[in-house]
Design a protein around this nucleic acid. Structure first.
Lengths: 265, 265
DNA sequence: AAGTGGTCTAGACCACGGG
DNA sequence: CCGTGGTCTAGACCACTTC
């Protein structure tokens, strides 16, 4: 296989990054320096650089230069903790309570409620007909003023009708508690995790570079009082600063690595 | 904000794909057609096209054209099923047994065993010192001759020494069974899920396009006979054809959507 | 052979960040 | 202001697929 110039350049830069010759936070040579260093035209250099961006290996700031990304403090999203367990503050939903326990500041913005007809996928997961309306509660979640996740919960209208769930207000005590009050205590759930690239809107909202995928976690919640689900919650997280954690059986207490921050879904 | 030509082109193509004007499997206009359609130079068109590739919206075949990807049959990886449960064939590891149950053909290739010093991350997760050796068992897993996942399991040497685990052979009855025979019955585990972009090697091995992220699932296994973990298994899956599933509580039986194929981790 | 995308060049002007 | 990366052009040749 005949070597291809931009691939050689990319491979060389990859090696220098992975070997630590270029470390986190360091600036790489400028485009014109790379041109002379590799004896290639600017566009060829840019093709190589684009490949590295898409792998998440470098970050480019217009006007300033190219950098090896700082390693981010990872949030570990605990997705199999019991609701309301582990000394969380009662009367708060688990996201808020969990972030507070971690010593961070939670915030929910742009909260909206809507009633709509579900698309095929949502209807299938919620086990309702496509002509049955659902109540949709959407919000953006922040930690310390940085966008953290977007969330959308769907409720069958026969549960939500006439309740707070279809109302326009945030519910600080958590919707799990509301469902319990309505007689639908959540006894089990099923999570489906997908990963995909962000839309341009998500890239802008989360302020992430190229090469950063998104987690999409869909949680279907069940109650003993009903065969079909009582709720579907879809949460989207950027994958560069989040990892998901699931315990099976009675796993031992968590040992945190340096800088790791546990939060709740 | 002054409109930028290649972004306009990309946005227009995105709309046509999402609206269904270009459907799965359809060929898009060629580069030269897009040049005349948008009145832009070839490189500008190519920048727009590159963005769509990175979002996973289109797939490009050299010499043939650009296509909207066929939607893949999704594998659903069941990660919270009981080992050996649900009528799996006894005497087979859960991956093989699960794939057979789904009516597909499992295959393990390029199996290797190695003894090495763990890096900082592995040592931390396994709770061994960086100067304590570990046994590493690596393999590539296929389903119906298509690459499905790569897997690497790490065992503390004080468990693996002198056992099949450090030997060069595949163990068809599953290493969970071997650990049980050694007195380390697995009673709990903790999964950590990450998502990242593939390396060029992974792109080639899994034959995936740009814009397809990878799942990295790290499972730490615990036994009642020992405080520190008995195994760490790291599995890598391409995210375009896999979703991960975790049940919490006693979730109801799974309802499969059309074409969905459940398999085991 | 014809048509597709892949590679590469040389040069121009623009927009942003920081001194 | 200068240096950075971002946009865009016009043209050339190459490699792969299909007929």
């Amino acid at each position: 296989m005949r070597p291809v110039r931009h691939q050689e350049i990319a491979e060389d830069l990859r090696k220098k990054i992975n070997s630590g010759e270029y470390r986190s936070g360091m600036q790489l040579p400028t485009e014109s320096e790379l041109e002379t260093e590799y004896g290639a035209s600017r566009n060829t250099v840019r093709v190589a650089v684009a490949a590295l961006m898409n792998e998440g290996l470098i970050q480019v700031n217009r006007g300033r230069g190219m950098y090896v990304p700082d390693s981010l403090i990872p949030f570990t999203v605990l997705l199999s903790e019991e609701e309301g367990g582990r000394g969380l503050r009662p009367g708060l939903d688990s996201y808020r309570a969990g972030v507070l326990v971690a010593g961070r500041r939670p915030d929910v913005r742009n909260f909206t409620t809507r009633i709509e007809y579900p698309d095929t996928e949502i209807a299938g997961l919620l086990e309702v007909g496509e002509r049955d309306q659902v109540a949709v509660r959407s919000s953006e979640r922040y930690i310390d003023d940085s966008p953290y996740s977007t969330q959308r919960s769907y409720y069958p209208m026969d549960i939500a009708r006439g309740t707070e769930l279809e109302g326009p207000d945030k519910i600080n005590r958590g919707t799990i508690e509301v469902l319990r009050e309505l007689g639908f205590e959540q006894v089990s759930h099923r999570d489906t995790v997908k990963a995909r690239m962000p839309t341009p809107e998500e890239r802008a909202f989360f302020r992430i570079g190229l090469g950063v995928p998104m987690f999409v976690v869909s949680r279907i919640a069940y109650s003993a009082a009903r065969e079909s689900p009582v709720r579907l919650t879809v949460t989207v997280y950027p994958a560069d600063r989040n990892r998901l954690s699931y315990d099976g059986g009675d796993a031992p207490a968590r040992r945190l690595t340096e800088g790791e921050i546990p939060v709740f879904g």
